Amino acid sequence: MNISLHGKRAIVSGSTAGIGLAIAFGLAESGAEVVLNGRSKARVDAAVKQLRGKFPGVKVSGVVADLGTAEGAEKLFAKVPQADILVNNLGIFEPKGFFEISDEEWRNFFEVNVMSAVRLSRHYAPGMAERGWGRVLFLSSESAVQIPVEMVHYGTTKTALLAVSRGLAETLAGTGVTVNAVLPGPTRSEGVGEFFQKMAKEQGLSSDKMEANFIAEHRPTSLIKRLATVEEVASMVVYLASCQASATTGAALRVDGGVVRSIV
């Protein structure tokens, strides 16, 4: 399968590292113009430099904005008014017991993980519909269907994204715009890697042993018995952004290594 996204502009929120950066690489490799995003100018500039170095023939730009706020979203809209592909990747997570999660933390998780995607989709999807082609993608999680007891607030926001994704797909029926959610399982992203390194140090274990212990104890239903790579998740996103995926919409597609014990 030869995926070509030449002539398409893609925005990937939260894309200076991890899954977001891997998605940006995948889209750029397929020929799309890519707009990167992050809160730090240094990190955005570094990510832009990486992509330009790897794909010199592809147009790459970056927007420094905190998309977890309405003001940050407006900043992006002013710099990039239209897009053909929107990847709502921005998200935060933090292991924390339910009874320790404050109101402020609940609100912050919803602003960053849910409202960032709502605002961006609300702005960019109508233009896609007017042009008769577009792709809106939401990065949810297997935690959306198996709420982790150590991160109830995180899992809840990822469940909300599934509802938003399906609802928007229904709203855009027949327009040529597809809307889908991708559900990664435990993935070796920058944030997760740092989390495991911290825990490994505290427990006097190697990072590999810490990872193996996590899978065995917290995700024992994993069929691949390891963390996924960011590239494995990105490959699904790139496919869904392609013309080849034109009959896939309103769906929630898992890249979870079989963690969710379901045949559908």
Score class of each variant (00 low, 15 high):
residue 161 L to T: 09
residue 196 F to Q: 08
residue 228 A to S: 13
residue 102 S to K: 08
residue 21 L to Q: 04
residue 177 V to P: 03
residue 253 L to H: 09
residue 163 A to Y: 06
residue 183 L to D: 04
residue 179 V to F: 06
residue 182 V to Q: 04
residue 167 G to A: 09
residue 140 S to Y: 00
residue 20 G to Y: 01
residue 207 S to N: 11
residue 57 G to H: 15
residue 245 A to L: 11
residue 16 T to K: 12
residue 231 E to W: 01
residue 241 A to K: 07
residue 193 G to I: 06
residue 229 T to C: 06
residue 246 S to P: 07
residue 101 I to N: 12
residue 110 F to G: 02
residue 69 T to N: 06
residue 81 P to K: 02
residue 227 L to G: 03
residue 25 F to S: 15
residue 231 E to F: 04
residue 253 L to F: 13
residue 122 R to F: 01
residue 85 I to G: 00
residue 226 R to W: 14
residue 262 S to K: 04
residue 103 D to Q: 10
residue 164 V to F: 09
residue 241 A to D: 08
residue 90 L to G: 00
residue 257 G to Q: 07
residue 51 L to F: 14
residue 40 S to A: 10
residue 172 L to D: 01
residue 262 S to N: 06
residue 211 E to T: 11
residue 174 G to H: 12
residue 127 G to W: 00
residue 8 K to H: 15
residue 224 I to F: 10
residue 46 A to E: 15
residue 112 V to E: 02
residue 189 S to T: 15
residue 252 A to R: 08
residue 235 S to Y: 14
residue 227 L to Y: 15
residue 142 E to L: 08
residue 252 A to W: 10
residue 193 G to D: 11
residue 218 H to P: 01
residue 256 D to F: 03
residue 73 A to K: 01
residue 51 L to E: 14
residue 70 A to V: 10
residue 38 G to V: 12
residue 233 V to R: 07
residue 156 T to F: 06
residue 32 A to C: 02
residue 71 E to G: 05
residue 199 M to D: 12
residue 89 N to D: 09
residue 231 E to P: 05
residue 240 L to T: 02
residue 192 V to P: 03
residue 204 G to A: 09
residue 132 G to T: 14
residue 132 G to K: 07
residue 109 F to S: 06
residue 28 A to Q: 05
residue 196 F to W: 15
residue 51 L to S: 06
residue 258 G to D: 14
residue 12 V to L: 08
residue 104 E to Q: 11
residue 39 R to L: 10
residue 185 G to W: 05
residue 64 V to S: 04
residue 57 G to W: 14
residue 175 T to R: 00
residue 150 E to F: 12
residue 109 F to N: 06
residue 244 Q to Y: 13
residue 74 E to N: 10
residue 197 Q to K: 13
residue 56 P to W: 15
residue 235 S to A: 14
residue 16 T to Q: 15
residue 141 S to P: 00
residue 219 R to Q: 12
residue 160 A to K: 08
residue 172 L to H: 04
residue 169 A to E: 03
residue 255 V to N: 03
residue 9 R to V: 06
